[in-house]
Design a protein around this nucleic acid. Sequence first.
RNA 1: GGCCCGUUCGUCUAGGGGUUAGGACGCAUCCCUUUCACGGAUGAAACACGGGUUCGAUUCCCGUACGGGCUACCA
Length: 512
Amino acid sequence: MEKRVRVRFAPSPTGGLHMGGVRTALFNYLFAKKHNGDFILRIEDTDQTRFVAGAEQYIIDALTWCGIAPNEGVGFGDGPHAPYRQSERKATGIYKNYADRLIASGHAYYAFDTSEELEDMRKRLEAAKVVAPQYNAVTRQNMRNSLTLPEDEVKRLIESGAPYVVRLKVPRNEEIRFQDIIRGWVTVNSSQVDDKVLLKSDGMPTYHLAHIVDDIEMQISHAVRGEEWLPSAPAHILIYRYLGLENDMPKLAHLPLILNPDGHGKISKREARFPVFPLSWEDPRDHVPYGGYREAGYYPEAFVNILALLGWNPGDNKEIMSLEEMAALFEFERVSKSGAKFDPEKAKWFNQQYLKSKTDGELAESFRPLLKEKGYEPDDAFLKEYCRLVKEKVQFVNDFWAQGRFIFEEPEKLDEAVLNKKWKDTSAATFTLVLNKFKELTTWDIPSVTACFHEAEAVNGGKIDMQLLRVLVTGASGGPQLFDTIALMGKEKVVARLEKGLKWVVANIEKK
RNA sequence: GGCCCGUUCGUCUAGGGGUUAGGACGCAUCCCUUUCACGGAUGAAACACGGGUUCGAUUCCCGUACGGGCUACCA
């Protein structure tokens, strides 16, 4: 019988969760949803030296914002396997129990080497031109551990409280073969694997031991994680094997990494010219602030959509998909093996697609608070119309203000490039005519304003340059639909702008 | 350096022994438009290289190159 699908996202709270981590969480989420399984959040806080206050809450907030909340685990309600924080699980003695089992069966051992002794070993090996210095089947013979020390000495050391670690006893030369759902068969020789530390001298398990114990205990069916774990997977296979759990271990899926669009390597928060965090993040240690996708104006649906298509696709050409649609289509067989460079331009396009699908009312509601910050609180009808005009021009609600700011505030200057290019000796008379026509107008709406302009053209005896009118009224060479904008601004404002603009242009622009 | 993983337009990717190698972003041109966009159409743009296997390879195999990851009592 197939195991119930239970997957976990297991970050360590060492900082803000970046977009790569979110994507790992997302794939876990999609897979769980597709199979009506469980999605668990487990916090892997076994490294006390790297613990960062607030990081755990950030992870919870980020997953929530993205709409991919786990249904079990830290921050999302305890399930049958509580606690879900490894530091708390350690208190139950669970990790030590498993380590003891490995020691009892002869697959793990105590090591008493100090960090200086380890350092010396590495130096010695490097001096001897050993390419990959490591604590392994060969070098452990010369170190202080329970395999080299007499039994009573080991006993004495432990009883005296001497610090020790527990290491995995990796065989010297053995082919380790395992299957990855995404990559197929992977083979590594055990000579490439070092005697990994399982239990640290502070009693905490390392990732290698802890995640295996927890995946077994929590009955995880699939371990989905980043490609950076591929090299240590053989060691993990060995641990499962020595524990007699190879048949119960989760299936493995190593996700390709998200790469920097320019430059090299995986995405780094320092050099990126785009947000790398879902939510803004400030590390309490150095107080360097980083912007987030939320603050940049991305819709969570868009953000998650972008991420999903970085390394996965449904097989047809569909790109805009809801979480539900993606979950229905998701499978690891369609996850690519190679890393994907993130394209910030395409990310913006995705957001634009989502923005275009919103109603004017929805847009008005999301723009209202931003506008209030600027000191303006127009009525609903005005705001909706504003959004209708401006939405076709932008990718983010955050840009709504800049796009139509001139409607609220007088422009500081008029676009001189356009004026210099197009202003003619007859222009002043032409636009005075337009101004006067506008002044006479009693009904001020889109059809009336449009008709009024056409009347002016009739009197003028020819087309009147709309871009010049645009500059005179709005200051800019481009912007939303002109007549619609003029109608929205109201007669008083338009007339005043036109008068003032005309005066300024006559005094400052050279005629053609 | 060693080990592991990878390599289709600039980017994300579809495809897969015989295809005009498809789509999307971006870019260019045109159409729509008396302004600005949206939209529509079109175009430029890719199978890393060298050997095999085969009637035939971009697709399978092997090398090389390039890219990425790992190489801690970090995850």
